[in-house]
């Protein structure tokens, strides 16, 4: 019955951190909301816009754009809101391993959420076509679907990075949500505003990716925006967490 004094294998940390995402009421509610919203949004759009498969899949992105970053934020800030970091980092003092284990499940969830939307859109397209007596449109732009999935992953990653940097869920959520509004304002500021948004706003920079026609220049702009919103805050946040005094 004795536990060994060998390093904790990473898959074990991963299993524990995945479990923590779903073992509380708030985690279960968040998952249920994500599932219900996906179905509701796709069904509603189907009724209004008609049986166009690709259009319906993309509709889920409206909710995902907000919910997935928030999921990322909650994942990395939860231990600080409830002070369970005391226990977690006493069990694994190499904190960067815990952070890595925390980031994987939400990133996987983003891919699963995208796949789920693709799945739900199938019966909705078929049923709407049947009910309305219209021919369904099954045309699929594979590059666009892949790009859209990747943008979901980027959304979660930006939430994780912001959450790690601030370690405060309300602040990170406010910034994450208001960023969209602020950038739409910036884009109105003439050429300079548009250029700024193209290079620094993750959503604007990810648009060519979602459209499935990412050029080399687009990729550079996306990389800059991702560095600004994901890489830099994630690295700074990880350094902060590893050095922070846990109280």
């Amino acid at each position: 019955m004795t536990a060994t004094a060998a390093p904790i294998p990473f898959p074990r940390l991963l299993a524990v951190e995945t479990r923590k995402l779903f073992d509380t009421r708030s985690g279960k509610i968040m998952t249920a909301v994500l599932v219900a919203l996906t179905v509701a949004v796709i069904a509603a759009r189907g009724l209004v816009a008609g049986p166009d498969y690709q259009l319906l899949v993309g509709t889920a992105g409206v909710g995902y754009g907000t919910l997935l970053p928030v999921l990322g934020i909650f994942t990395v800030t939860g231990e600080w809101s409830h002070r369970t970091a005391l226990t977690t980092f006493a069990l694994e003092p190499r904190r960067w391993r815990v952070i890595a284990a925390k980031c994987v499940p939400p990133l996987v969830t983003a891919v699963l959420a995208a796949l789920f939307a693709m799945l739900v859109a199938v019966p909705v397209t078929a049923v709407v076509a049947g009910v309305e007596g219209v021919a369904p449109t099954w045309d699929v732009d594979v590059a666009a679907l892949l790009g859209w999935t990747a943008s979901c992953v980027l959304g979660v990653a930006s939430g994780l990075a912001l959450g790690l940097l601030l370690l405060n869920a309300p602040a990170a959520i406010v910034i994450s949500l208001s960023a969209t509004i602020v950038w739409s304002g910036v884009r109105l500021l003439g050429d300079l505003g548009r250029t700024l948004a193209e290079w620094l706003d993750l959503n604007t920079a990810a648009m060519p990716l979602m459209a499935g026609d990412l050029t080399g220049a687009d990729a550079v702009r996306l990389a800059v925006a991702a560095a600004f919103w994901i890489v830099v805050p994630a690295v700074a946040g990880t350094v902060r967490v590893t050095r922070k005094e846990v109280t």
Partner: peptide, 17 residues
């Protein structure tokens, strides 16, 4: 390594979800 296998700690019983 795996410190809790050798050292048990309770730092704040109230710090729980």
């Amino acid at each position: 390594h795996n410190p809790a296998a050798q050292v048990g700690t309770l730092l704040d019983a109230g710090a729980q979800h």
